[in-house]
C-alpha cells in the first residue's frame, strides 16, 4: 500500500559520483516516495550500481545532492551526515540486499543469528525474543523452522537470498536497496523470490530502489523505472510506460532485445 506523504522519502538532484576523473554516474535526478518501488535498469557499466552505492552512502556524492527524509520527518542532506549517523541509518532505517548473499550474510553464523543480528545491533538483549522474531521472519520468507540453526553455507542460492531479505527487513527499515537480488538464481527460483519481494514490499509499505539488468524483474516488482546508459539517466517514468512505449533509442534497444514470454 502506498502511504500518503507530503514529501518524498528520497530526493535526488543532479547527483553524481566520479572515480578519478571519470564519472560513474552523473546528473541523476528523481524523487522516491514511501511505498514506491523504483527499478534502475541498464547493462553492466551503465552506472546503476554506482548510483545505488551513492544513494546508500557507500560511495560519496561528488556533485549534486541526495536528501533523505528521516524517521523524525527531517529532510536531511546525506552528504552532511557523519559516519556514525550514516551507520545508524544502515542499522535502523535502510536495508541493503546484495546480489551475492555471501556479501550480505555471515555464511558461518546460523540463519537465526544472521536474522537476529540487526536486532542485537539495535540493542535487543533478550535471547528468547530475538530468536522468536528471527523465527517469525524466516517463516515469512518461507524457510522451514527446523533450518533456523543451520548456516547459510549449507543453503541453496534461493534460500540464502531469502535469509538475506529477512535480515534486511527484520528491523523494520523504511528504505531498502537491492542490487540484482535475483540474478544468478534459477528461473523458477527467481519467480518465487520476486513474488516474495513484491508481497513483502507491498505489505510493509516499503520504498525500494532495485538495480537490475533484467527488464522482466523491473516489470514484475517496480512502479517506476529509470533507464541508465553510460552513467546517465536516458529515460524514466512509470514502468509499464517505459517498457511498453520506450522513447529513448537505448530503451527501445533494451526492450527489443528481450524475449517475449
Amino acid at each position: 500500500m502506498i502511504a500518503e506523504s507530503a514529501s518524498p522519502l528520497l530526493s535526488v538532484s543532479g547527483a553524481g559520483h566520479h572515480y578519478g576523473n571519470r564519472f560513474g554516474c552523473r546528473g541523476v535526478s528523481f524523487d522516491l516516495w514511501p511505498g514506491e518501488v523504483l527499478a534502475v535498469v541498464g547493462e553492466s557499466g551503465s552506472g546503476k550500481s554506482t548510483l545505488l552505492g551513492m544513494l546508500s552512502q557507500r560511495l560519496n556524492i561528488d556533485e549534486g545532492s541526495v536528501h533523505y527524509q528521516t524517521a523524525e520527518g527531517q529532510m536531511t542532506d546525506l552528504a552532511t551526515l557523519s559516519e556514525p549517523e550514516v551507520r545508524r541509518l544502515w542499522r535502523t532505517e535502510w536495508g541493503f540486499v546484495h546480489q551475492n548473499a555471501a556479501e550480505g550474510l555471515r555464511m558461518h553464523v546460523s540463519a537465526g543469528g544472521n536474522v537476529g543480528e540487526p536486532l542485537m545491533a539495535n540493542g535487543a538483549r533478550h535471547y528468547g525474543k530475538i530468536r522468536a522474531r528471527a523465527a517469525d521472519w524466516l517463516q515469512r520468507v518461507e524457510i522451514l523452522a527446523d533450518r533456523i540453526d543451520e548456516t547459510p553455507a549449507t543453503f541453496s542460492g534461493g534460500m540464502r537470498q531469502r535469509v538475506q531479505i529477512a535480515r534486511n527487513l527484520v528491523f523494520g527499515p523504511r528504505l531498502v536497496f537491492m542490487d540484482e537480488p535475483t540474478s544468478g538464481l534459477d528461473v523458477s527460483v527467481q519467480a518465487k523470490l520476486l513474488d516474495l519481494i513484491r508481497s513483502l514490499v507491498a505489505d510493509l509499505g516499503l520504498a525500494v530502489v532495485v538495480v537490475t539488468h533484467d527488464l522482466a524483474v523491473a516489470r514484475l516488482i517496480s512502479h517506476r523505472t529509470l533507464v541508465m546508459q553510460g552513467g546517465q539517466v536516458v529515460e524514466q517514468g512509470l514502468t509499464d510506460r517505459v517498457l511498453d512505449d520506450p522513447q529513448a533509442a537505448y530503451t527501445q534497444l533494451l526492450v527489443s532485445s528481450i524475449l517475449k514470454g
Binding site: G116, P118, L119, R125, R131
Partner: peptide, 9 residues
C-alpha cells in the same frame, strides 16, 4: 551487535 551474535550462536 556482532559480539552478541557469538553468544547467541
Amino acid at each position: 551487535g556482532l559480539m552478541y551474535v557469538k553468544l547467541f550462536e
